[in-house]
Structure formats: C-alpha cells, structure tokens
C-alpha cells in the first residue's frame, strides 16, 4: 500500500479518552465523531486535518478504553495511516478492522509536524520528503497482511463462512 501526506505529531501514551471523549460515544457515525477527534489534547486538529493526512506519535498510541469510536473518529477525518513507536493492542486491532494502517516505526522523533511523508508498505520504505530522509520499515506477517488486504475481520469472517 502507498500513502503520502502531511503529518500531525503527538507524544507518548495518547489514550482513547483524549482521542474521542466519552460524551460522544452515543453515536457510531465517523462523520459526527470526526468533529471531536483529538479534542482532549488538540482542539484544532479536527478543524485542520484533511484527507490523506498522517498521524505520527510516540509509544503506546491508543491506550486505554477499547472504544472503536477512537478509530472511527480518526477514519472520519480521512486519516488512513498512523505511524507510532508502538500501539496499544486493542487500538491496533481496531485499526486493522477499520482500514487504518498502524505502522510501527521507532524513529518518529525524526518527523516534525507538517512534514510530507511517503510510505510504501510493499517495498518497506518510509521517505520524509520534507527532510529528504529515507528509512526501512517492518512488514507485517502473512495473517495481518491478509487481514489488511481483505479490509478487516468482517470480510475475513464472510470468507470463512462462505458468505458472498
């Protein structure tokens, strides 16, 4: 998969309560949720973010509550790639099920807000076009790759159950 976009950077331990505060959990609509995305930490993010933009963060992104609304809010903003040093495990799974690519990358400190980043997951490269830097990135194992290509556990289950 290929991604190219402008980055929004965040720190370590960004929890799902700040990604989407509880009071908005009464809706499942990405379009409604996106207006409050990151509200707990950055009140301007939801206004400024555009499709293809990329979230960049430190360790343990998406920790805390299992609320899938956090991923729905981010996908509602048009973001398709999150680059973090590490992901909380439930959030990571939710990304796979909602068409967001969770890229683990240890050198996120080298990426600044507003940098233009190019990622080719098949070739295993990340390019910071703003800084003219190139890095190798890890590839997922066969199962996770299949899950991403299918579009998550629902298409996977449909395949398993022979539902067309």
């Amino acid at each position: 998969m290929i991604f190219k976009g402008r980055t929004f950077t965040f720190g370590d331990n960004i929890d799902t309560d700040v990604i989407i505060p509880t009071k908005y959990l009464v809706t499942n609509s990405p379009d409604e949720l996106k207006a409050h995305c990151m509200e707990g930490i950055d009140t301007e993010f939801a206004r400024d973010v555009c499709g293809n933009d990329i979230i960049v963060a430190g360790e343990n992104f998406g920790c805390g509550s299992s609320r899938e609304h956090a991923v729905l809010a981010i996908s509602g903003c048009g973001v398709r790639l999150i680059i973090a040093k590490s992901f909380a495990r439930i959030f990571f799974r939710n990304c796979l099920n909602r068409g967001i690519y969770p890229l683990e990358f240890k050198h996120t400190d080298q990426i600044d807000r507003g940098n233009i980043i190019f990622v080719d997951t098949d070739r295993g490269i990340l390019k910071n076009e703003t800084k003219n830097e190139e890095y190798e990135i890890p590839k997922f194992d066969a199962f996770i790759t299949e899950l991403i290509e299918l579009g998550g556990i629902i298409p996977y289950a449909r395949k398993q159950l022979n539902i067309r």
Partner: peptide
Amino acid sequence: GVGSTDVAGIMALGTT
C-alpha cells in the same frame, strides 16, 4: 478485551 468489530467477528465465528 477487543473492539466492536472483533466482537462481531467472534459472534459469527466463535474464534479469534
């Protein structure tokens, strides 16, 4: 714990 879509998958498959 898992998220909602994984719950739906398990509802159907009984596995994860």
